[in-house]
Amino acid sequence: MKFSYFPGCTLKTKGKDLDIFARKSAEALGFALCELADWQCCGAVYPMAKDEIATKLSSVRALVSARDEGQELVTLCSACHNVIKQVNNDMATDADIALRVNNYLGLDTPYNGETTVLHYLEVLRDRIGFDKLKAAVTNPLKGRKIAAYYGCLLLRPSKIMQFDDAENPTILEDFIRAIGAEPVSWGMRNECCGGYIAAEDKAQATKRSNTVMEDAAKNGADTMITACPLCLYNLAKNGGSDLPVVYFTELLAEALGVK
């Protein structure tokens, strides 16, 4: 099983763990992540305005590369996933955006959203299967109580992301069970931590991340997992809690004995 892979800028610097453990685990599970050549930063935030074209181009370039490889495109960072998947949806459903982007790029074959964008978790669930993952686990994380933090970007807008039930998701909990740990039930798992404004409005980011961390701790978590470098930074830095926040891939690698 081979996938095109878009790591994104943060995974090459501050978020290396997210990437490294994902690659090691992929190898252990028997699928290959082929990093796209010359990928560019996705922009880290989806431009909602219908008259924004330039800010969507880098995502489209990644999508086109995957199409030309004839592969599905796998992402890992929640922000990259959100941006690329939403832009892909624009290319498939918004004729005006698609026309203007294609006019600008001047591709041999115009792009109209043909690439399938998968988050790494979706690969685990839909291509590998959590039962197979469970069977591959050599070091089950028994007794660990893990809070799955979805945040916003993997789930919403749900009509476009189609990642899971946006209000009652289970994919991360199923993942936690597959690696032998116990998921914690808590309500703030799909509420925003305020990551985007962590640089310019630290007070607001602190307030939001406190709320999230408190809820997880109160419900008995010993560890929180996320797929988002921005959430991880904000929650760990501003969350005001001792609860460790790690990338889900780190626990995956640990359970597969490849950490």
Binding site: G15, V45, A199
Partner: peptide
Amino acid sequence: AMLDEDMPQQLFVSAMRKY
């Protein structure tokens, strides 16, 4: 002035994009 050593660059990329 806003930087700290753990800050992921996507934070600034997104802030610049938005603002």
